[in-house]
Computed example of a mutant assay.
Amino acid sequence: MLTSLPNLLTLGRILAIPALIILLYMNEPGTRWAALVLYILACATDWLDGKLARSMGEVSPLGRFLDPIADKLLVAAIIIMLVALSDISGVSLLAAIVILCREILVSGLREYLAELRVPMPVSRLAKWKTMVQMTALGVLILGPAGPALLMLPLVGDVLLWIAAVLTLITGYDYLMRGIAHMKAH
């Protein structure tokens, strides 16, 4: 049901993306801080919508469909904006590309396996990857607007590379599991 609280939270995450893009595009210290706050709220809904859906018994096909799409749209939009603003640049572009390619790969794999009625549950390591990735992007959003002493651009780049390594590991794991199911069918 579209109007259930968990689904509304997921839709809210999707609707936050244009506001995040505008705030980042403005690229002022105040708008960077506002973007960070909005991004943190969007990330919190990622955790909260699933928890509420399970606790309220409102897990729905629509929610299972929308939630990963909302996550991938949010990540892709933020990465593209950070690249456009040169907050992700140089060799760190490779980390961003790895992250985006894995998201596309896993989405396609899940879609294919769904047709076979094969579930592809999220692994514990993939949850860690998501947490590191969300943290990296949050640090990079604030980046130049944060206190210089914290070296946020450097910290964000390091976290982005850690997320990229975890992305490669979890992407490979999902791919191998998916291929095993494909061979069985």
Rank of each mutant, 00 (worst) to 15 (best):
M56I: 00
E58S: 09
E58I: 04
V59I: 11
V59S: 05
V59F: 01
S60G: 14
P61G: 09
L62V: 04
G63F: 13
F65V: 05
F65D: 06
F65Q: 10
L66N: 10
D67M: 03
A70K: 06
K72W: 03
L74P: 10
L74E: 00
L74D: 00
V75H: 03
A76P: 04
A76Q: 00
A76T: 12
A77L: 06
I79E: 01
I80P: 05
M81S: 15
M81I: 13
M81Y: 10
L82F: 02
L82S: 06
V83F: 01
V83N: 01
V83I: 12
A84M: 12
A84P: 07
L85F: 06
S86R: 13
D87I: 04
D87H: 09
D87S: 14
I88Q: 03
S89C: 02
G90T: 02
V91G: 02
V91L: 13
V91F: 14
V91R: 12
S92G: 00
S92N: 13
S92Y: 07
L93E: 01
L93W: 05
L93S: 01
A95G: 02
I97H: 00
V98T: 06
V98A: 10
L100Q: 08
L100D: 05
R102L: 02
R102H: 05
E103F: 03
I104G: 07
L105S: 08
L105A: 12
V106H: 05
G108Y: 07
L109C: 06
L109N: 04
L109R: 06
R110E: 01
R110V: 00
E111Y: 15
A114K: 13
A114V: 09
A114H: 07
E115S: 08
L116C: 02
R117G: 09
V118Q: 12
V118T: 11
P119G: 05
M120K: 15
M120F: 10
V122F: 05
V122T: 08
V122G: 06
S123P: 11
S123Q: 12
R124W: 10
R124M: 09
L125V: 15
A126M: 03
K127D: 01
K129E: 03
M131A: 15
V132K: 11
Q133E: 13
Q133F: 04
Q133C: 04
M134S: 11
T135M: 12
T135H: 04
A136I: 06
L137P: 08
L137M: 07
L137F: 09
L137D: 06
L137C: 10
G138F: 10
G138D: 03
G138N: 11
G138L: 02
G138Q: 11
L140C: 00
I141G: 01
L142M: 08
G143W: 02
G143C: 11
G143A: 15
P144E: 14
P144D: 14
P144F: 08
P144S: 13
A145W: 04
A145F: 02
A148Y: 04
L149I: 13
L149N: 08
M151D: 08
M151W: 02
P153N: 11
P153V: 03
L154R: 08
